[in-house]
Design a protein around this nucleic acid. Structure first.
Lengths: 343, 343
DNA sequence: GATTAGCACTCTCGGCTAGAGAGTGCTAAC
DNA sequence: GTTAGCACTCTCTAGCCGAGAGTGCTAATC
């Protein structure tokens, strides 16, 4: 795409700004009046014509105002948005909220979803953080009744997994806790495969338990991205583009089928590990997202635990505000996760 | 309300049945033709007039067919529905599904939500099961790095709670595990208050930890109903009564604000502990639910752990099918929870 | 050469009307 | 008690019309 003049960029930016606010095609006259541009509507029309030919704007019908195309939004986000950021006051407020809730991953995830939904006025998505590879830290066996035993497995990073198991025979409590200690010593810091490899070293009981531990750990590996929490669905309904049900239904189904979401998040986030990723209109890859945009970011500490968060909304989204919010919350979550997990 | 004749009940039932299917006012002629009633449309009209006077039917406008009133639905559910039940084949299928997933409470909750949403073609709600009063079972202290310690608390029933804490000074691992054993011995089977009362018996370290344990336990008590999972939101959108956004938005907000949901579930379920509860149109008590119906049930084993599940849909809901599904899934979940927790 | 005023043209949207269709309540006959 | 017949009411849809907004083009202006 060839270069746009300064004025064309201004016009594009203003049209997008106006359209995001009003959700209605914006015409040349309204534009120059509303923003006191120093040009006449005719000049604006000429520029708009150029932008339309460049594929950045589009007319819903012959005699209506202009609406940004997906390409137009992309140009805007890539070239014109700059490094927006939340006002300091809002940042402090959000940060304060995070430090006020109980220090618990689950709570942070909820709060993050709530904050994102509120600031973006769209639907938000936040996965719980997960370690890339579960590493053994501590095992505890707690006898309950008869041959039922509760297996509590602590992973490096503080994640706790539990699992019931029924032993072949009754085993005294003392023997259980001894076995747990022995296994803990042998497996400290090992991953699922390595734990499984240790199993021969133990007695029948130890082998049974070790295999189960390895099993639980590999299951933890399998769900590499955590559960997806969401918030702000109701915001989507306020958007005029979702008044007819079809588009809305698709988005809703999206949010409920976490498998699809995980796939999108994983794919969209793999290339850019650092910053915020903006997916506008599905980018051709996701038919189901063609009426939506997503603003996504990873958070957490690579090596310890990472998660993803983002916002799902209409293509006509307040990208500036949303990107700032996503970036800031991702940073905040990273700090919190590092604090909690790094030890 | 005075008694209805046999024929009036038939007419009411058929109108409700027809309206549930088509979502459109049903007229006398269509009714007698569709169901080959042995009466003429004029007779049907007379009966419909009586039912309208009795407050069980209503006309959207002077010259339209009849639509059931909330009172009409209530009569139908209370007197005419009988003991419907899912077909054996479907029961077996559902049961099979439950036994196929990983034996894990979280998985069962998800599956229950999915099954309910599918069978009711509406939105479903399932809380995770919770013990009515958290009772201490086992404490484990795992040192991580420096003065950071991971506190793992196992409650009676197998629920596991974890919490980070930072000690005032560095404490060797051995001393930690000894303290944990000591506290475990002293607090076995006690509730939050009793645990707090024990705290004086211990050294400074023990006191600090015991108080934290009591704190964690009382927090567990506070959330007497678990987290609410939901599924099948997309089903709601298919319903014609939710095409305009207002009613839908309300229901959505309901599902997202779990606080409100918990209140509704708690209230609606407190009187009838045994069976399935049907709330039609909010029953006057909940303004927010006035366009919706809920079919709710408790599950679990009183004394061990209980939860609630149910379906939220339009008032024009397939009550027979939904009630059967809710009842069956609640029973299934009860069995599973008892199996898992009873030990 | 860029900008602008003026103008004819196009397209949507809201309001209006008319006719079709469905359903009702009533009355009189069976 | 039931039913056929009928006049009446109300909604829903299609079609039409005028207002309004916006455009593209041309010719004049800076």
């Amino acid at each position: 795409m060839s270069e746009l003049t300064q004025r064309q960029e201004t016009v594009l930016a203003l049209i997008i700004h106006e359209y995001i606010e009003t959700a209605e095609p914006v015409g040349s006259k309204a534009l120059v009046e509303r923003y006191s541009l120093g040009i006449s509507s005719a000049t604006a029309r000429n520029e708009m014509g150029t932008l339309t030919e460049a594929g950045l704007l589009r007319q819903p019908h012959t005699s209506a105002g202009r609406v940004p195309t997906e390409e137009g939004y992309r140009y805007f986000v890539r070239r014109l948005l700059g490094e927006t950021d939340l006002p300091e006051a809002e940042k402090r407020l959000i940060s304060h909220q995070f430090h006020q809730v109980r220090p618990d991953v689950e709570q942070w995830v909820r709060l993050a979803a709530s904050v994102l939904a509120h600031h973006s006025r769209s639907a938000s998505l936040v996965t719980t953080p997960r370690s890339p590879r579960a590493l053994f830290k501590h095992l505890e066996l707690i006898s309950t009744q008869g041959r039922q035993v509760l297996l509590v497995l602590v992973l490096q990073g503080g994640e706790v997994r539990q699992q019931m198991l029924t032993l072949a025979s009754n085993v005294p409590e003392l023997q259980l806790s001894e076995a747990a200690h022995e296994i803990t010593r042998a497996c400290l810091g090992k991953d699922a495969a390595a734990v499984a490899a240790q199993s021969q070293r133990f007695s029948t009981l130890g082998q049974e338990i070790t295999r189960l531990v390895a099993d639980v750990m590999s299951r933890a590996d399998a769900v590499s991205s955590g559960e997806v929490h969401h918030d702000g669905l109701a915001n989507m309904l306020n958007q005029p583009e979702f008044t007819d049900s079809e588009a809305l239904r698709q988005s809703l189904r999206l949010l409920e089928e976490s498998s699809f979401l995980e796939e999108v998040m994983a794919k969209a986030l793999s290339p850019s590990v650092g910053g915020v990723q903006v997916v506008i209109g599905g980018e051709g890859a996701w038919e189901e997202l063609k009426d939506c945009s997503m603003v996504l970011a990873r958070y957490g500490a690579p090596g310890y635990a990472t998660g993803a968060l983002g916002v799902l909304g209409p293509i006509r989204m307040a990208y500036g505000r949303t990107i700032s919010a996503v970036r800031y919350v991702a940073g905040l979550m990273s700090d919190l996760v590092v604090d909690a997990y790094a030890s």
